[in-house]
Amino acid sequence: MRPVTATVARPDMTTLRMYAAVAAAEFRRYATYRQAMVAAMFTNSVFGFLRCFVLLAVAGGAAGGAAAGYPRDRLATYVWIGQGLLGTVNIWSPPELAERIRTGDVVADLLRPVNPVMAYLAADLGRFGYAAVTRLVIPIAVGAVAFDLYAPAHPVTYPLFVGSVLCATVVCFACRYLVNATAYWLLDSRGPQIGWVAVSSALSGMAFPLAFLPAPLTTALYLATPLPYLIQVPADVLVERHPPATMAAMVAGQVAWAAVMLAAARLVQRRAERRVVIQGG
């Protein structure tokens, strides 16, 4: 990193402002897809009811009426947060970048004087901003009407949750970027895409809390993969599964994963660009 001096601070401010503009444009773009949002809310709600009923039945059939340590109200909350996070963290976004790479449109991104990873991240955060006030909040509200949800006891949980969702979004963005970037080498990136969707839906905590899995496997997932940091960690933060200090440590883990995955995305992007240049595009 270069030392920040007055002379480089100015261009940095312009760059930041440019990223902010990209994010704002993306926020507005998503705000126009109102009908698709209504449809998504309907779908999220149906799946919310479904999973909630199933997991409550699981708790009912488990010893002590709590499933893997989740009492009923926390379990219900967990499900509805999960539905909200699905569209906010955006695990299953359409493979736009891979499509741009396949068609060659990506060259237009490379011609811009900004880092494509950061520009795409800014856009994704704009989308996140809109999703956070719609797709995250609405399922929780629907769930709260139909089920007894758990209200966090510690005030610190709320800021921690906001930070955790933001980190989850960045981690998820970087993961998807890497999956999409395989298109630079494979052209048809459907294999990695399918793998990503399968693995992320099974092992991110979306289908069921990871505590349902054998403990060694869960530990391995936390230590070796970014997957639990997508849904499991933010959901656990809000239902206060662990004491605040432990949860803060988990969010710190998210920050670390976000940094690692973003660095990996930038590295891969640099390699890919060199490849595009060598091949002549």
């Binding site: 199933v54 039945a57 699981v58 708790a59 009912g60 059939g61 289908a207 069921f208 899995l213």
Partner: peptide, 15 residues
């Protein structure tokens, strides 16, 4: 797999 995992935690589901 989701169905199998659920029965790791519960002995019965919905009776």
């Amino acid at each position: 797999l989701a169905v199998l995992v659920v029965f790791r935690v519960a002995r019965s589901v919905g009776g």
